[in-house]
Design a protein around this nucleic acid. Structure first.
Lengths: 151, 151
DNA sequence: ACCACATTAAAGCCAAGGCTATATTCTGTC
DNA sequence: GACAGAATATAGCCTTGGCTTTAATGTGGT
């Protein structure tokens, strides 16, 4: 007789379930770049009063033309406005996205540090992680931090 | 006389520092797709004994040709092997990457659940987050989980 | 043994996000 | 006010990762 599996393999999730998870991750990735830009632009505006393409490019570590191209996409999607040679500004919805992104960023960094991750690593990892944290997880993170502060 | 800033704006990181953070995130993203594929292929191999392109495609939620194209990339990068019409297998380094990815995935899911994130959300968010968790953070997560289990 | 159906492969299209090279426009200094 | 140098914009190229369409190959059932 055949011997059935000795180690119980943890069954895989159903294909549709798994496809949906991957689909969400792909979608999050699609907006990640937009979030990075508006978040950075909001920071530059609030600290320097202006957001120039060249500064955006330098801080993102990409060439100027790449930054300009992405800024054009922001304009196309109604997140930013810009006149030629005049710097970049955020629309209403751009600001909204930036605020949500900044809030998430802050919570993720705080969580990582609370878990014992050194500050620079926390900032670095957060840059990638933040775009994949759902509202549900974000609230859980906030609860954890609050409960921990009270202790 | 001019009034200096009333609220102390948290100074921005230096451009090179910030560029480096974004660069790391971009690099992580570049390998994310490879990790997703080898992780899934490893799972299929261990559960079903074979990894067919069509199953890979279905579980990732992409069309078959897209999956085939990515599998070709895996072959090009020395992570997988495949004969026409014969299914996909992992090379030594493919297995190594899959094991690292699975370990990270598991820890991230456990962490999220430990923080109170419901299981399906934990799985879903982990799919995106795992690729951006550095070894340093991963070890911190593991430490946290261990200390919590002991309590 | 055949034939229908499933699977696989191949070809070609598209948008996104990188890049370099070149042209244009500002701007600050003399 | 002119001009040099910085910033910006434009054009064109490449790769990746999606897609659809079409062709080729396996495979299982009668």
């Amino acid at each position: 007789m055949t011997i059935s599996k000795l180690q119980v393999e943890p069954a895989l999730p159903s294909p549709p379930t798994q496809a949906q998870r991957f689909g969400k991750a792909r979608e999050a990735q699609a907006v990640a770049l937009l979030e990075d830009y508006v978040e950075l632009i909001a920071d530059l505006l609030s600290v320097h009063g202006e957001a120039r393409p060249i500064d955006i490019a330098r801080r993102l570590g990409v060439s100027h033309p790449t930054a300009v191209k992405s800024i054009n996409r922001l304009k196309r999607e109604g997140l930013a406005t810009a006149q030629p040679y005049r710097g970049v500004f955020l629309t209403e919805s751009g600001h909204a996205m930036a605020n949500r992104a900044r809030a998430r960023h802050r919570v993720v960094v705080q969580l990582l540090e609370a878990l014992g991750v050194p500050p620079e690593t926390a900032e670095s990892d957060a840059e990638g992680i933040e775009h994949h944290v759902s509202d549900i997880s974000l609230r859980a993170f906030a609860r954890f931090l609050r409960s921990r502060d009270l202790r």
